[in-house]
């Protein structure tokens, strides 16, 4: 009884802020203005404008995730090999930007990349041609990588530190060179960290609208922007919810993948 009482705040919280909103999204997504059941809002993803935004979102998130992975993995390995004092400091440096507001950080990139921004000023100072940096897919990817990179580094770093150094020694001992050891021992053993890193970068990248608004202008619409506009500008909650449900399907797919790999990492699949 006591335990149930203690759990009450969390129950209220989950019902009020998770279950009810979710139920409302499904209600709006599956009905039209009159309240009648319809799949139109979900089918709306097939229209040229929406599917283009969805594919672009998937593509840019995928690219950001891949870039994050290739930046984070070597870094996590270097961190792992450092002495305790040193690696704590470096991890701290990577977490430090997260103490600043996410929007503020993205805004800073805007100032850097603008037509008359810092980077172009430096270029013109050296009489080099100015570049069109902002409002490009590249700028959005940069924003995603910059903001979400720590979420890739930390889980990989965590899973790497869990590997017994003697397991790596054993691989060398059995004749494997550094590359073979990385490929056959270190990477497979760090897979749970890699998969959760991928989820933690891919999911927020896929759903973001702030980064694409600030660094992509209004020229490049991601699925996040489309949904946001349906709610704020078009006031079409039904369509917005419908598209959200579609997006959720992709996120759930990613989660399923994550659990499957995590189980394997724990050695439960025999």
């Amino acid at each position: 009884m006591r335990k149930k009482l203690l759990a009450a705040p969390y129950t209220v919280w989950s019902v009020a802020f998770i279950l009810i909103p979710l139920a409302m999204v499904f209600y709006y997504g599956l009905t039209d203005e009159t309240g009648a059941f319809t799949l139109e809002n979900i089918a709306a993803i097939a229209t040229a404008e929406h599917s283009k935004a969805l594919w672009l979102s998937l593509l840019l998130s995928l690219i950001s995730t891949i870039i994050c992975f290739f930046l984070a993995y070597p870094l996590a390995m270097i961190l792992c090999r450092m002495q305790v004092n040193q690696h704590k400091f470096i991890v701290f440096i990577f977490i430090l930007p997260m103490w600043m507001n996410f929007l503020l950080r993205t805004l800073a990139w805007q100032t850097l990349l603008e037509k008359s921004g810092v980077i172009n000023n430096i270029l013109s100072f050296f009489h080099l041609p100015t570049q069109n940096l902002i409002n490009t897919p590249g700028a959005i990817v940069l924003g995603m990588v910059y903001n979400f990179l720590p979420f890739m580094i930390l889980p990989i770093y965590n899973s790497l530190t869990k590997i017994d150094p003697n397991v790596i020694n054993a691989a060398h001992d059995l004749g494997a060179n550094n590359f073979q050891t990385l490929l056959k021992i270190i990477f497979p053993l760090s897979l749970p960290g890699v998969v959760s890193g991928i989820t933690m970068v891919f999911v927020p990248s896929l759903t973001t609208f702030a980064i694409s608004t600030m660094l992509g202008g209004s020229k490049i619409l991601l699925i996040g922007n489309v949904i946001e506009q349906e709610f704020t500008q078009a006031s079409n909650w039904h369509l917005g919810s419908g598209l959200s449900i579609v997006l959720m399907i992709f996120i759930i797919l990613n989660m399923v993948l994550n659990t499957a790999f995590d189980k394997e990492g724990e050695g439960n699949v025999i």
Binding site: D164, N166, V167, N169, A170, A171, H172, D173, L174, G175, A176, N177, I185, P188, L189, L191, E264, G265, G267
Partner: peptide, 19 residues
């Protein structure tokens, strides 16, 4: 380097490849 030596080691905590 160890991978070029004609000897093998049995480690204290077994160090098996758990995957």
């Amino acid at each position: 380097p160890p991978n070029k030596r004609q000897l093998n080691t049995v480690f204290q905590k077994y160090a098996l490849f758990t995957h």
